[in-house]
Computed example of a mutant assay.
Amino acid sequence: MAGHRIFTTSFSSVYPHYVAKAERKSRSKEEVDEIIRWLTGYSQKQLEAILENGTDFQTFFDLAPALNPLREAIKGTICGVRIEAIEDPTMREIRYLDKLVDELAKGRPMSKILRS
């Protein structure tokens, strides 16, 4: 999937959709932020800076301070594709995030979403 357009899409343009999806199901922006911080290792301040400066998805994941090793326990399908079968590492990271936000919107407890 090299060169997929999502790689050059700014993270800040998709972030409001993650938040809206969560809020439609009575979850919060803070919970979305917690998921992003858990997955990537960014602090809240770093996340806010990324949202302000228009960082694209490729750079967002390339510069992530500490990708959580427990993210590899995220299994299942997203958009009809098994996450474990995605070969491109950046696309797999994007799909991990999508899956976590889906789990949040489905009402799953944070402890289970964060694989604790």
Rank of each mutant, 00 (worst) to 15 (best):
H4T: 09
F7Y: 13
F7T: 12
T8P: 04
T8C: 06
F11N: 00
S12N: 15
S12C: 14
P16H: 12
P16W: 12
P16V: 06
H17G: 10
Y18N: 07
A20Q: 13
A22F: 02
E23V: 14
E23R: 13
E23G: 03
S28E: 03
E30T: 06
E31T: 02
V32H: 00
V32A: 01
I35V: 11
R37G: 00
G41I: 03
Y42R: 10
Y42W: 08
A49N: 15
A49Y: 02
I50G: 05
I50Q: 06
E52D: 14
E52I: 08
T55D: 03
D56P: 10
T59K: 10
F60Q: 08
F61C: 05
L63F: 07
P65C: 09
N68G: 02
P69G: 14
L70C: 03
E72H: 07
E72R: 15
A73Q: 12
A73S: 08
A73C: 02
R82I: 05
A85E: 13
I86C: 09
E87Y: 03
E87Q: 13
D88T: 02
P89I: 06
P89Y: 07
R92C: 01
E93I: 02
I94E: 02
R95Q: 11
R95C: 14
K99S: 11
K99P: 01
V101E: 04
E103I: 00
L104M: 05
A105K: 01
A105F: 04
R108P: 00
P109G: 10
P109R: 12
M110Q: 04
S111Y: 09
K112M: 04
S116A: 03
